[in-house]
Design a protein around this nucleic acid. Structure first.
Lengths: 226, 226
DNA sequence: TTATGTCTTATTGTTGACAATCCCTCTGTT
DNA sequence: AACAGAGGGATTGTCAACAATAAGACATAA
């Protein structure tokens, strides 16, 4: 949560961050049409930097723009959300494998400590899906960077996670799921600690598969309306 | 090679396309520092749309920008190129699996016909790595779109392929490789035609693995200096 | 009443000028 | 001769005004 050299950031970066978090948190609803001048007054910017930020967000798939017609927040259908998890499955599987091969012993210890704190978090804030989601994000974040695969981490952290988190904020996790997930996390870390890339990949894929099935069930139950 | 509604494109789109192809073709060398005004005169643009395009390219990982210091074309190290192929392996494996499940019969016939034309192309232009590379790109392009997984296709076609092609243009393929690759392509399409998703994924992963090993060998031979 | 065509208006796309920042060179010192 | 510091210059970041386009409203006709 450190924020170094916030000063050296350019206005376009600032705009980009603001918009990205606004979209992810749901302050800008999916499908919503957003006008440039309105955004300018809202975030205290001028249109130059804003347009640059809009370009970046479009290329990341968080916005859709039609020439002269304005910009809309992307709206992901239920099917597309499922597809996102299919992509995560293979990419994070690879990340887990490479993390098992390349993470330092210290990083692995850190990761284990992180899981301990997650366990405490789940206990005290049981049912509070928000904290669980943040913990989950933290775990996957570490694996992605631990893979030492620059592009892979960039695609996961810069593209996929933002789109997934867009719905995490609306999607309450099932009752028993946090504990389940934590157990799966632990086994993945064990495999990484044993430098067993095959197993780490297998477990991670199964972990994300379980998450996907959980979401599919919710959608069928009609809990999630997209 | 059709160019529909070129007119309705905005100047920023134009700038984006120009720069992207210039980077991929090598007209802008990796690592090269490029000034904004120079680019403007080169592509007949003004700095507004240009900066928007630069933002998009940066977010796609084709450029790196430091505030107030200018923009450089990304330079991918040999290790990173290999990592790119590791990502391709899992993502295109998934694409092949989903293509086997979802492509229409007509698309599959088209794909088979494409391979026939590739065979002819290889015969007449043997050794001409360029045409082989284009044919290969065409094949993988069809599989990606055939997966009906919007985000997957977007990530493959919009991100990974451009970075890979950056080096394809410089990297001459080995003597026997085109024929080998074509054979592998044929077997993948066979699996897709039989709707065998497991096999299609397996074969595609092995295909890209072979391409990666081919490149690794070249790098060790010192043919490719990045 | 509905559909169609035109026109107005507001929004987007573009431009050129202005301000802020960093890089490079030149000078001075060790 | 080599290194450090400061200044000039060029380049990037930002802004506000102008032009072009599409959406929406209104009126007319079927």
């Amino acid at each position: 949560m450190a924020e170094p050299q916030l000063q050296t950031q350019t206005r376009a970066d600032e705009a980009f961050d603001c918009l990205q978090t606004a979209i992810v948190k749901g302050d800008l609803a999916p499908g919503e049409k957003i006008g440039e001048v309105e955004l300018c007054s809202r975030f205290n910017l001028t249109r130059g930097p804003l347009r640059e930020a809009l370009g970046r967000l479009e290329s990341r798939g968080l916005l859709v723009r039609r020439p002269h017609a304005g910009v809309n927040v992307v709206s992901v259908s239920a099917e597309e959300l499922i597809e996102l998890y299919r992509i995560r499955e293979v990419m994070e599987g690879l990340a887990a494998r490479q993390a098992a091969e390349r993470m330092t012993d210290e990083e692995i210890r850190d990761l284990q400590a992180t899981l301990d704190s997650h366990e405490a978090l789940i206990e005290e804030a049981q049912g509070q899906a928000y904290y669980q989601a943040e913990g989950d994000y933290d775990f996957h974040h570490r694996i992605a960077t631990g893979s030492r695969n620059t592009k892979l981490a960039q695609m996961l952290l810069g593209d996929l996670y933002y789109m997934v988190r867009m719905y995490r904020y609306r999607l309450s996790t099932s009752a028993g799921r946090p504990h389940m997930a934590l157990g799966e996390h632990r086994r993945i870390v064990e495999a990484i600690a044993q430098r067993d890339g095959d197993l780490a990949e297998f477990l991670m894929k199964r972990h994300i598969n379980a998450a996907r099935q959980n979401i599919e069930k919710k959608i069928q139950e009609g809990v999630l309306t997209i």
